[in-house]
């Protein structure tokens, strides 16, 4: 039954009764209750909700950074929750892009090297790597800053590099965890517009976990979580 559904589904990302519990001292806490979500290719979706509603937990499960206590996660019809450590690493490398709240660039690498890193572990040839790096640096408006270290950039510039890093490996989906949380309004607006343009022109799928109303306003779909359950999905 599930097999047939998988074959017919055009969902890029899908969860089946995903549940996550963890121990807080001796008390078992359920962070997510049997959740079913499906994201289609090209969507620009935001997951919102108060702190502790399960946004980050859901994002961790969707990206394979964490394993569900029960249920399954599928990306492009592949059940990532069944994959081994190396398979998951390779899968994330080739199919998922990440944007973190605190940019999280590697401080000892230059901007170019940070962007190049994923392509390097993907085994892409040097010429193509450099071409893609230069192209994406132009796209994010940092063409002249390729040789700088992250510490020499502003927060907004660092987040642009983080977006470039997430996009450059051409993943199927980009998962962004509070990408504008540490930025001022103007910078945040610019970044949201940039990501939206990428979504519209290049068809890149974005899934945000956010508190930011501006992201929610720009999203084509908004999922609200409450107490580890879907409260609304519009």
């Amino acid at each position: 039954m599930i097999q047939n559904f998988q074959e017919l589904s055009d969902d890029m990302l899908r969860t089946e009764n995903v549940m996550k519990t963890y121990m807080s001292g001796e008390v078992e806490v359920t962070a997510l209750h049997e959740m079913n979500i499906a994201i289609k290719k090209g969507e620009f979706t935001a997951i919102a909700g108060p702190s502790g509603s399960g946004k980050s937990t859901l994002l961790n499960l969707l990206s394979g950074l964490d394993k569900p206590s029960s249920g399954k996660v599928f990306i492009n019809q592949k059940a990532i929750s069944d994959m081994s450590g190396n398979q998951l690493s390779d899968f994330r490398r080739d199919h998922i892009g990440f944007i973190f709240q605190s940019y999280n660039l590697i401080p000892v690498l230059t901007v170019k090297e940070n962007i190049e890193y994923i392509m390097l572990i993907q085994g892409i040839a040097e010429a193509e790597r450099l071409e893609r790096v230069n192209e994406i640096l132009n796209d994010v408006g940092l063409a002249s800053m390729g040789n700088r270290r992250p510490s020499q950039l502003s927060g907004g510039q660092q987040q642009r590099v983080a977006i470039a890093r997430a996009v450059v490996s051409r993943p199927d989906i980009i998962l962004a965890d509070e990408p504008t949380a540490n930025l001022d309004s103007k910078t945040a607006d610019n970044l949201i517009n940039m990501m939206q343009t990428m979504n519209e022109t290049k068809g890149i799928t974005f899934l945000f976990s956010t508190h930011d109303k501006r992201i929610m306003d720009h999203s084509k779909r908004l999922i609200i979580l409450k107490d580890g359950k879907i409260d609304s999905d519009n």
Binding site: R92, R93, D94, I96, F98, I106, I118, Q122, R165
Partner: peptide, 16 residues
């Protein structure tokens, strides 16, 4: 530690 989390998240294998 966080940086290792990032490296692993973007697809770096444990062996690397």
């Amino acid at each position: 530690m966080f940086e290792f989390g990032v490296l692993r998240a973007v697809g770096t294998r444990p062996s690397v």
